[in-house]
Design a protein around this nucleic acid. Structure first.
Lengths: 345, 345
DNA sequence: CGTCATTTTGCAAGCGCTTGCATTCACCCC
DNA sequence: GGGGTGAATGCAAGCGCTTGCAAAATGACG
């Protein structure tokens, strides 16, 4: 890396070893076409010379990139949003899984199409495929992109009309699990905290509404609070909401972070969780089990999801069409909604 | 991306536009050497043909990669460790900052030297420089790597004998701040929770010891608990530790996650925070302000740190040597150590 | 010692792009 | 209309690597 100008090339090694470049190439790539003795000698020389193969040239010759671009389409500035542990987990899994298949991971925070690369107005093809971790508000752009550039999978809200491969949790089901759980515990007036502009949140909201309907509970618009992801902002937004108590006795928060923010405000206002109000979150982030009270939450199978995305992408690269997939979610019952459960383990 | 086989090249565009490849190249790169009319025509054609420049070829010709490898040297399997929001924050900043300078980010979870790329025994030079986010247990390997491959900066414990550019928080100072704060509140017997095998934790421990010494408090080895990062494991490890109460009346936890785990166990055992025991964490993760009780913690300037790393690396790439830098830390006082402070804003 | 089958090696073309230099073109002026 | 000028274009080499194919070396064998 670096020091590129003075980098030693295969030609140099060839000269040192008194063989042709091709032989060096073959020796380094472990071809059987080169005598063992020669190979060892070349390897030795290469090692001593600190030779590092130029992967760009290699990939160019091989017509591959062995790189997958992973895009986290997150508005800049809203750093906090990223802090959601979801992203790290996902990134870690993707990196591992892609690594197993021999792919490198190129990170991006913005989608390729709004990239203003100086001096080049064109979308650079720098990867064999693209994974969108979240579709945010640009579904149609992704769709367009997928149509033009084929190998794409995305994480997010799966819907019937996707024309590219989307993998995502069963958000509707998760919303149902959360809401129904509280109703079964005897809660009557469940509030919803989340940003329904985002497709996944909308699905969770959908599950929430479905359950209310099936219990013949009318939707109370005042209990639907548009709450951003960022925990600081969520804290602010839910502050006035707390005042509405006792119009609600249960809260379905679209993420554990939001749940935490709400709980903090409730406690501060002297409202007890879970005694006065039950709270259910979403995500099952690592700390959710260890805060007070431990948060009941909907678990998303992120690791699994990451693996599935990679598998599908590899499939697509191999030329096979791939179906979208919806991953089951699971309710993790903890104290915050009134369960008599002791703290875990 | 993908569909590489059928990808349209500059040659194709040239043929379509009835000009030479060079003209296409110049047109796309916005050179003034091509007539405006021609340029527009070529751009139009390229757009319609869904042309995407092959960056590998481009970079090869330009003898650059415009890529920085960002390495999170994290043991595989211990995914949870990654969940530390620190990593996402850092990654986000690095991606943004490098992006501003026109660099892409290549993610890695393992250092280049233990990479077993099939068919190639050699360290591939695939980036102009490398950023290590954390040095973990392989300082000497990094040092070696830096010596051979020049452009390297690392985040971590800064020590006098570094021979490559290390940026990191003032961990010793942070440890002092945390410990001294509790002593000043009247606590006498402060426990230390953390993994002193890790250089940064060792430095925090160092600060802790310094303060104890300056207060003439002997170090009680039983109150130094080797606690891993992972919150689940931390929970287990600190469980027996809780029993030692009331041998301690304060806890300095090496990370907020550990602090959370400890607090959870304390409360479960009926020990009150901060009334019976003060707790100070480290990191100032987003949720630390919103849990109960809000955690007093040492803030690391991660965003700033990321920026500094990028600046230094750019400097190094430009041929200038760069000094290591230690970033000030700051104590954020919240309720968990007994401060009379209300919850924040 | 010559033959022939097997290794080993080297040659050269090619991956898709950039760029210095030569060439062509259009236009202007005397 | 010829010569000169500057702008626009094309040619060809080269970036560092791979690989099909031909050439050379090796060794077995009659």
């Amino acid at each position: 890396m670096a020091r590129r100008s003075s980098e030693v090339t295969m030609g140099d090694i060839a000269r040192m070893a008194n063989v042709s470049e091709s032989t060096v190439s073959r020796a380094l790539s472990g071809s059987t076409l080169v005598a063992e003795k020669t190979r060892d000698r070349i390897l030795e020389i290469a090692r001593n010379a600190d030779f590092a193969i130029n992967e760009q040239a290699r990939n160019l010759a091989l017509r591959q990139t062995r790189t997958i671009e992973v895009i986290f389409p997150i508005e800049r500035g809203t750093l906090q949003q990223v802090s959601d542990p979801f992203f790290v987990d996902m990134l870690a899994v993707l990196t591992d899984e892609l690594g197993k298949h021999g792919y490198d991971v190129l990170m991006s925070r913005s989608p390729p199409w709004d990239e203003e690369r100086p001096g080049c107005a064109f979308l650079g093809a720098r990867a064999d495929g693209v994974i969108f971790v979240g579709q945010g508000r640009h579904r149609s752009a992704i769709r367009d992109f997928a149509r033009r550039h084929a190998s794409v999978v995305a994480w997010g809200a799966v819907s019937a009309d996707d024309d590219y491969c989307v993998i995502g949790s069963d958000n509707v089901g998760g919303g149902r699990l959360a809401t129904e759980h509280m109703l079964k515990l005897g809660r009557k007036r469940i509030a919803f905290l989340g940003d329904t502009d985002l497709p996944e949140m909308r699905q969770r909201f959908e599950g929430y509404k479905q359950v209310l309907a099936s219990y013949d509970i009318p939707l109370d618009e005042d209990l639907v609070i548009h709450t951003p992801f960022d925990i600081e902002k969520a804290r602010e937004v839910t502050k006035p909401f707390v005042e509405l108590f006792p119009r609600y006795d249960g809260i379905f928060a679209c993420s554990d972070m939001i749940a935490m923010a709400a709980i903090a405000n409730l406690r501060q206002a002297g409202i007890a969780v879970p005694d006065d109000v039950s709270v259910v979150g979403f995500d099952d982030i690592p700390s959710s089990a260890h805060v007070s009270p431990p948060i009941t939450t909907v678990h998303q199978r992120i690791r699994h999801g990451g693996k599935v995305m990679v598998e599908k992408l590899i499939g697509i690269l191999g030329g096979e069409a791939q179906e979208p997939e919806i991953l089951k979610t699971e309710l993790i019952i903890r104290q915050s909604c009134g369960a008599r459960v002791a703290t875990p383990s």
